[in-house]
Design a protein around this nucleic acid. Structure first.
Length: 421
DNA sequence: TCTGGGGTCCTAGGACCC
DNA sequence: TCTGGGGTCCTAGGACCC
């Protein structure tokens, strides 16, 4: 009865489930969570899916008819989702010694015990956290993804599908009747190229010559072919020692057209990037500042400037200075920029790198960064700003989040209050 | 009027070396 | 006159993920 297998456990409409946890009125109603700037839909409840709300749909297109359909929107509250994600992953991890946290709401685990073990996880997550999850079980990650998708699509499975329990011939039929585009790791471009070789269904791909696929496409797709055959060849990965890059980027609520305002944006974003570096205990050697026009507009411009920093650093002053000097002079006049970002790369753990002493002794810079951190931790984000980032009121380009819920689990002043009737 | 943000991996091609 | 070839490293860009 006990086979070594891989399970994909993921939360159903995770962001919506997080919102429902603290607002039970949202249960049973069509709910969507919007991207930053209240731009487009990034999570939908089952009821919202039934209404036909597509993933990625811009909110301004839905807003007009939302009331009529009883559709409820929430701004994304990543502080809340991030915190609940950590708790969810911890709960899932109790069921296996072998866990890969794949995304904010998904985890691959090694799992023996088939569907019964899957149901135990589903019930545990429900009982301990109140978050509904689905479990797909198979002999490879790619197939576990499919099993999970199937469990979600068919309520009869009650959230758990183990391919090993499928009747003979069932999987063949499933693969033959589904397009490659629904496979993990295959999207539009690859689907179109595959069609050129006469490969349309998942079964076509599974039965293709994987050495040929390797030559025509890549090792990645060749692995997918073997995974479809049930061969477990994309290994479960442990937590990474350090990440490769860290990005802070945001769209503006109103476009920016002049270098001066962009310098202000750069000051705020670079300071935020520095703060994230410190939170992760990392220092960076390269910083890239970029901005871009809307993909939907006629005039396209995407300036990007990479700056090699004198030393590995997480110093907010240094990053702000580099970013404000680099990007604003590169703007094209009279152009409407709608987003910008700071990317830091060449990351290493703080303290692992021998430092060259810059002009201000390192010890003093470190104290400043740490002090800023302490002030923000105590008085909240945005309390302190360097130079142009020192704004008393939010700038007119700042992110729009009109339907934001409280940070229930991460800020004392937002703690939910329960009253006995 | 208004269309997200944060990541990873792979590959091709150039620079450079001997 | 005739002007190599194999290897590594780095980076930009493509494709994909949630």
């Amino acid at each position: 009865m006990s086979r070594p297998a891989v399970a994909l456990v993921d939360a159903n409409a995770f962001y919506v489930s997080c919102e429902r946890l603290f607002d039970p009125r949202l249960e049973g109603r069509p709910v969507v969570v919007l991207s930053n700037n209240d731009g487009c839909v990034v999570a939908r409840s089952a009821e919202a899916k039934q209404l036909g709300v597509p993933m990625g749909e811009p909110w301004f297109k839905l807003q007009a008819t939302a009331d009529r359909h009883g559709l409820i929107a929430r701004s994304s509250n990543y502080e809340l989702y991030g915190d609940l994600s950590v708790r969810l992953m911890e709960v899932i991890g109790r069921y296996s010694a072998w866990q890969e946290v794949y995304s904010i709401d998904e985890s691959f685990i090694g799992l023996n015990g088939g569907a019964a073990a899957g149901r135990a996880i589903r019930d545990g997550a429900r009982r301990l956290l109140g978050i509904p999850v689905s479990v797909g079980i198979a002999t490879s990650k790619t197939l576990a993804k499919l099993a999970n998708k199937h469990a979600k699509a068919h309520p009869a499975f009650e959230g758990v599908c183990d391919l090993a329990e499928a009747p003979p011939g069932w999987l063949d039929n499933y693969l033959a009747t589904h397009s490659v585009v629904d496979l993990w790791g295959v999207a539009g471009r690859t689907t179109r190229r595959l069609a050129g070789y006469g490969i349309h269904s998942m079964k076509d791909l599974r039965d293709a010559d994987d050495r040929q696929i390797r030559r025509w496409f890549s090792v990645v797709l060749a692995r997918t072919v073997r995974e479809l055959r049930g061969e477990h060849c994309i290994p479960l990965e442990g937590p990474r020692a350090t990440r490769d890059q860290l990005i802070y980027s945001r769209s503006f609520s109103t476009p920016i057209t002049d270098a001066d305002r962009m310098a202000q944006v750069m000051a705020v974003y670079a300071q935020n990037a520095a703060q994230r570096l410190r939170r992760h205990g990392l220092v960076a050697k390269t910083m890239t500042a970029w901005c871009s026009t809307s993909w939907y507009g006629a005039a396209q411009d995407h300036p990007s400037v990479a700056v090699s920093l004198p030393t590995h650093t997480d110093d907010p002053i240094e990053l702000v200075r580099a970013a404000t000097a680099a990007l604003p002079p590169r703007l094209t006049p009279d152009t409407r920029y709608v987003r910008a970002g700071i990317v830091v790369t060449d990351l290493v753990p703080r303290g692992s790198q021998p430092y060259l002493e810059p002009f201000v002794p390192l010890s003093e810079r470190r104290r400043l960064g740490d002090t800023m951190q302490a002030v923000e931790d105590r008085f909240g984000p945005g309390t302190l700003g360097l130079g142009r980032a020192g704004l008393r009121t939010p700038p007119e380009w700042a992110m729009r989040r009109q339907m934001l819920t409280p940070h229930y689990t991460t800020r004392w002043e937002h703690l939910p209050v329960a009253r006995a009737a």
